[in-house]
Design a protein around this nucleic acid. Structure first.
Lengths: 309, 309
DNA sequence: TCAAAAGTGTTATCCTTACACCCATGT
DNA sequence: ACATGGGTGTAAGGATAACACTTTTGA
C-alpha cells in the first residue's frame, strides 16, 4: 500500500476583473514561465478547500472569497518524465485594484478567447487555416476532427460559445499549435514546429490547461448563476457590470436585453446615488441583492451571453 | 515531502436503468453495508480514468462505457477517526439486463428522491415537519436554514428540482435525519436520535454522499446533453425512453412535449420496425443518432425535465 | 453644439407548456 | 366493446433578440 501513496497538489485559478480586464493570479512573473499558485496537500489541512486557501494566502497574501472545485488531473501523458502528481484544481473569485503585481490578463495567455471585437481578424483566419490543415487525415479521422473544430471554434454553421474555451485549447494542443504540445504530435513534426504566431503566453507544466478549465467553468456558470457579483465592488453601475460580463465571456452582449434581464430578475437594487466617472450621462449606482442567493439558488438567475454568428 | 504523501482512492458511481429502474452497482450486498466499487490509484495506472476502469472491471467483471469525473473528496470531518484518504469519484453509465446481482435500486437508498407519484405522501409531510423542527434556531441561522430547505425540497413557492439531490441529502445529514449523521449533530442529540423512519439504505463511509453527487450530476446533465442514450439499448421505443428519463429524474414529464423535443432535435431516427410488447398500440422502434454527438456538442440537445409545482 | 454613455419603449419570433383528441392493438 | 399505451394538432404564454429612440452630462 505504501507504494501507492501519491503526492497531492492543490492548484488555484484565482480570477479578478479590475477595470474590466479579466486577470489570473500567477507566480514567477514577470520573468520566467508564469505558474498558478499551488502547493502540496498537507497532513494538517482539514479539507482540500482549507488547504488551498492556506496556500494561496501564504503565497500571495491574498484572502479568498468564493471558491469551487474544478477538476482533478493525474494523467502522466502530459508530463511523462516526472513522477505522477495528483493535482486538485480550484476556481476562486476575488476583487482587486488594477495594477497589483502578480496578476496577468488572461487574454495574453489565450489571445483567441477574446472575441469582443469580433473574430474576423487575422488571428481567426490563421487559426482556421492551420486547424483545417491538421484535420487532413484518413477519412473517418478527418471528419471527426473537422466536426470538433467547427463546434469548438464556431466555424461552419456552429456558433462560437464562450464556454468551449477548454475544447479550443485542447484542439490547439492536439494540433501542435501551442508551445506545450506533445512531442511528436503532428505527422513527423517536433513540438513548436507549427506553432501559431499568436500562440499566447505559455505556463508551467499543464497550468495553461488548468486555467482553460477554470475559464470554461466560469463562463458556463455566468449563464445560470449570479457569480459575476463575486467579482464586482459593493456598488457599481450597470455599464460596469456589463463590461465585466463581456470581459469574462469574451463577447459583447446586447445592452438593453442585459439591463432588462438584470433588473427583472431583481439581481440588483439602486443605491440612489449616481456617478459621472464614465463620461456621458451619469449612471445610477446599484448594489447586488445578496438575498437572492438564498431565494432562488435553483431558479434562472442567468445573464445573457448570446452566441455570436 | 514524504510525510505529505496521500492514499488516493478511485470511487465509481456506475448507473444502469434496466426495465425503467435506476440502479447503482454496489459491492458487499446483499448482506452488510453496501459500498461503491473503489480501489487505490496505482503507480502503473496511466490516468485516473484508466485506473477506475481497471478497478471496476476487476471487481465487477463489468466493462464501462461513458465515464466522467465527479468530484474529489478529502474532508476529514466525515470520518475523523481514520487517516485521510483522497477520493476521486467518477460517474459511469452502462446497459445491463434486469436482475443481475450487485445492482441496487437507487430509490432504496434515497426514498425521498422518487417523486414520480407526486410528493404529497406521508414521507414528504414527515420530512417537512422534521426539517422544520431542525430549522428552529436563533434568528439569522433559522432563516438561512429554512431558505435552504425550501429551495432544496421545493417547499413554499420554490419548485422541486431533480438536480438538487445532493443539497437534499446534505440538509438531511446536517439535520441528523439520516443514519450517517455526524456525532453531536443536533442540539444535544446523538446520531440516529431523530432518524427518519424512511431514512433509506445507508452505505459505507461517505459513499452515500458520493452517490448523491452522482445522481445530482446525472440529473443536471440530462437537461442539456443527450446522456440518456448511454443507458438505452440500441433500439427502443419513445415510451421506454421517456420511462428511463422519468426514472432518472424522479419526476414525470409531459408526454407530447417529450416526444416533440426528442424528434425536432433529431436525436433519434426510426428503424422502421414496430413492437407490441408494451400492450396497447404497437410502438415505433427508434435508434439513437450517434452523429449528433459530433454535430451539436454545444447546442441545445436537452430533454424536458419540468419542475413540478 | 456634439460626442458619449445612460436609459426607455416596442415589436417580431421562438420556445415552452398545456390541452384535447385520434389511432391501433390485445383481451 | 374497452382498456391501454402510441401518436398528432393546435392554441396560449412567456422569454429572447432585435430595432429605434430619448436623456443627461462633459468638452
Amino acid at each position: 500500500m505504501v507504494a501507492d501513496l501519491q503526492a497531492v497538489e492543490l492548484v488555484a485559478v484565482i480570477v479578478a476583473v479590475p477595470g474590466g480586464v479579466p486577470q489570473v493570479l500567477t507566480l514567477g512573473a514577470p520573468i520566467g514561465v508564469p505558474a498558478l499558485p499551488a502547493g502540496p496537500l498537507e497532513a494538517d489541512h482539514r479539507s482540500l478547500q482549507y488547504g488551498l486557501r492556506t496556500w494561496v494566502e501564504r503565497q500571495t497574501g491574498h484572502p479568498l472569497g468564493y471558491v469551487e472545485q474544478l477538476y482533478t488531473f493525474a494523467d502522466r501523458e502530459r508530463a511523462p518524465a516526472r513522477e505522477r502528481v495528483v493535482s486538485v484544481s480550484y476556481l476562486g473569485l476575488t476583487r482587486v485594484e488594477a495594477g497589483e503585481p502578480g496578476w496577468r490578463d488572461w487574454y495574453q495567455i489565450f489571445p483567441w478567447e477574446d472575441c469582443r471585437d469580433g473574430r474576423s481578424d487575422s488571428l481567426y483566419a490563421d487559426l482556421r487555416a492551420r486547424l483545417g490543415a491538421w484535420a487532413q487525415a484518413s477519412a473517418p479521422v478527418a471528419a471527426r476532427r473537422q466536426a470538433r473544430i467547427d463546434v469548438a471554434f464556431g466555424f461552419g454553421d456552429a456558433a462560437w460559445a464562450p464556454e468551449n474555451c477548454l475544447q479550443r485549447y485542447e484542439l490547439l494542443w492536439e494540433a501542435g499549435l501551442v508551445p506545450e504540445a506533445p512531442v511528436g504530435a503532428g505527422p513527423g513534426a517536433g513540438p513548436g514546429e507549427h506553432e501559431l504566431p499568436a500562440a499566447g503566453q505559455r505556463m508551467l507544466g499543464d497550468h495553461r490547461r488548468i486555467l482553460a478549465t477554470g475559464i470554461a467553468r466560469l463562463r458556463a456558470k455566468l449563464q445560470y448563476r449570479p457569480v459575476v457579483f463575486e467579482l464586482m465592488p459593493d456598488t457599481f453601475t450597470l455599464g460596469t457590470l456589463q463590461l465585466t460580463v463581456e470581459a469574462l465571456a469574451g463577447t459583447r452582449v446586447h445592452k438593453q436585453n442585459f439591463r432588462r434581464l438584470v433588473e427583472q430578475q431583481h439581481l440588483v437594487e439602486p443605491t440612489g446615488a449616481t456617478t459621472a466617472v464614465t463620461g456621458g450621462r451619469p449612471a445610477k449606482v446599484y448594489r447586488f441583492r445578496r438575498e437572492i442567493l438564498a431565494e432562488r439558488q435553483a431558479a434562472g438567475t442567468k445573464l445573457p451571453v448570446p452566441r455570436s454568428r
